[in-house]
Amino acid sequence: MPLAVTVNFPAALQPAAGGASLVVREAVASVGQLIEALERLAPGLGKELDDPLYNVAVNDEMILHAVDRHPIADGDRVEIVPTMAGG
């Protein structure tokens, strides 16, 4: 089971997260469980993350589908990445 997973947030989510990053120190095995743990650490953050603007990158690889089932391991670096289109 994971001992520590660091999650980094973009500026727009930092007020809800209480800072630029959070360290989750409880047993989580997937991104879905990680988000539940984040909600326990920062109530309201889970709702903010339930937004199609935000994707999840694990160890610098962005997850495009089946995100909640994506496995998380001890020491993983997780980043919330705003995703949009441009011209």
């Binding site: 937004d51 603007l53 994707n55 962005m62 495009l64 705003p82 949009m84 289109a85 441009g86």
Partner: peptide, 23 residues
């Protein structure tokens, strides 16, 4: 809308660089 509130009106479209790079 989140993309306007949190991205377009704050930084503009350069936000897209990072997702493309990570992908």
């Amino acid at each position: 809308t989140s993309v306007v509130k949190n991205a377009l009106s704050k930084t503009g479209t350069p936000f897209l660089y990072k997702p493309s790079r990570l992908l």
